[in-house]
Amino acid sequence: MKLETDVGRLNKRITIQQLSAADEFDTIGNQLPGWTDYHSCWAAITGGKGSESQQAREPKQKVEKNFKIRYCAKLENINDINYRIKYKNQYYDIKDIDNISEADSLLIIRAVLED
């Protein structure tokens, strides 16, 4: 079953990045994580709402967005640990990936703006 979407709404360019080993090291010799571009695509973006979290007894707003993208085989194994989204030079931690109706047609990726 293929899900229909108005492709005109997929009008924002995003890049999905993959965690990779970097050639940088901290002061005691531990290798620092790096990110490489994995896949670029067009998305419809909704959200922008904040949710409160407690850190150091101060409420802090977390900006959450939903990125709706077309499914492709390259995205079959993305997860919320080794991947993130870059959009407008900001980075979003992936929290959830929904393959709508498991139809391999559309994905909705819920992500939170990195601190």
Rank of each mutant, 00 (worst) to 15 (best):
M1N: 03
T46A: 14
T27M: 13
D104F: 12
M1S: 05
D23R: 12
G50T: 15
Y38C: 09
K62I: 07
N99M: 00
I28P: 00
L19E: 13
Q18D: 06
A56H: 03
E4S: 14
G47I: 02
Y92W: 14
R70G: 09
T5L: 08
E102A: 03
N82G: 11
R110P: 05
G47W: 02
L19C: 05
Q90M: 14
D80Q: 03
I100P: 03
S105P: 00
K49I: 09
Y91G: 07
R84S: 10
C72L: 04
L19M: 13
K62E: 09
A73I: 07
N79W: 04
C41T: 15
S101I: 03
D23V: 06
G34M: 00
I14W: 00
K65W: 05
T46M: 11
S40E: 15
K65C: 06
W42V: 04
L19V: 09
Y87S: 00
Q55L: 12
K62T: 11
I81P: 00
N77S: 11
R110C: 10
N99T: 00
G29R: 00
I109F: 04
L113E: 11
R9W: 12
N99K: 00
G47L: 03
R84T: 13
S101R: 09
D104R: 13
Y91F: 15
D104N: 14
S53H: 06
D37V: 05
R9S: 08
K2E: 12
T36W: 03
E114I: 11
T46F: 06
A56Y: 14
D93S: 12
K62A: 06
S20P: 01
W42K: 07
Y92R: 01
E4Y: 02
T27D: 15
P59H: 13
K49W: 10
W42Q: 08
L3T: 04
S53F: 09
Q61I: 11
K86T: 06
E64R: 02
S53I: 15
A43V: 03
L32M: 10
K62H: 10
K49S: 08
A43M: 01
I69R: 00
R9V: 12
N66G: 07
A73F: 05
P59C: 02
A73E: 10
Y71E: 01
T15F: 04
K74F: 07
Q55V: 14
D96E: 14
A44E: 14
S20K: 12
K65I: 05
P59V: 12
K74A: 15
S20M: 06
A73W: 05
G47P: 02
I78M: 04
F25S: 01
A111K: 07
K74E: 15
K62N: 11
S105V: 01
L106I: 15
Y91H: 14
R84G: 12
V63I: 13
Y38A: 06
R70D: 04
I109P: 04
E76H: 06
Q55H: 09
L75M: 06
G34S: 01
T5A: 14
E102R: 05
S101C: 07
D98R: 03
G8W: 02
Q90D: 12
G47A: 01
W35A: 07
V7H: 15
E52V: 13
K2F: 09
N82W: 05
R70S: 06
F67M: 01
T27E: 15
D26C: 05
L75N: 05
L75T: 07
A56Q: 08
L75P: 05
V63K: 07
K65Q: 04
I85D: 01
K12Y: 15
L10T: 09
D26H: 03
S20I: 12
N30R: 10
K49H: 10
G48D: 08
